[in-house]
Design a protein around this nucleic acid. Sequence first.
DNA 1: GTACGCCTTCCACTCGGATGGAATGTCAAG
DNA 2: CTTGACATTCCATCCGAGTGGAAGGCGTAC
Lengths: 138, 138
Amino acid sequence: MRIGELAARLGVNPKTIRFYEARGLIPDPVRLPSGYRDYGPEDESRLAFIKTAQRLGLSLDEIGEILAFKERGERPCSYVLSVLDAQLSDIDRRIGELVRLRAELVTLKDRADQLLSGDACYCGIVEHAGRMSQMITR
Amino acid sequence: MRIGELAARLGVNPKTIRFYEARGLIPDPVRLPSGYRDYGPEDESRLAFIKTAQRLGLSLDEIGEILAFKERGERPCSYVLSVLDAQLSDIDRRIGELVRLRAELVTLKDRADQLLSGDACYCGIVEHAGRMSQMITR
DNA sequence: GTACGCCTTCCACTCGGATGGAATGTCAAG
DNA sequence: CTTGACATTCCATCCGAGTGGAAGGCGTAC
């Protein structure tokens, strides 16, 4: 399949695929007589892997390292594991923080709703934002 | 306190503080007779808030909008509420994604641990990554 | 009084991750 | 045989979030 189709299947820009090729993340593909890149299913799954890993928070360099291990037939396990461990604890931290921020925003919004329906209000939301800041950064 | 001390307290580069000022995220500070910026505790907590929000994945623009509520001292209008709502649902979405990714990472890591302790492992983790990809993107 | 560290402004550059656009080539359908 | 969609290369630009460096001012310690 040509680059446009591959890109469409994965929901990415064809330029992105060429960009990954230039970065060495995907191998130089076979070319059709026309010079067009010709991709197969392995390319699709490789690209899917890249996109997944990216969603997991890995940088293109990290992904490249993992793929390179695979290329060389080496055991990337411990490296991958350490990356995974780091990602995991980072995610835990972020979830905790988001949950806290969420609670604060909800409170803030509730106040705002009340104030909207109430009369004679300037902006209690403002004072609350101050408290929010303290709570969040506590 | 001067910019260097404030920066040190927060573990950021003084340039970053000037950058935030230029972006309108923090108010133009009082100046000492020397022309040096002079910061107080409110500046420190505001900066701390920015950094926290940033760790949570908010962009500087989003943070700016939130801080602008405070600045403008406006009544909570529907625009403000809609921004808050957007922020909230975005946070919910991100929490959901992170929770899912966390579960997948744990599974992946468990597999990897097994494979590591077993013998004759090239890199099952990579092959499992393919399955992982399916699981996550399901 | 000069050395040294911190401060000022301004402009340019970095970095990761793409994207845009120009100029040109390929190919199937009308 | 031309039109249109898609492809190619190469170079430039964008975005967010800073960071670097030059040229010069301030302030305290020796």
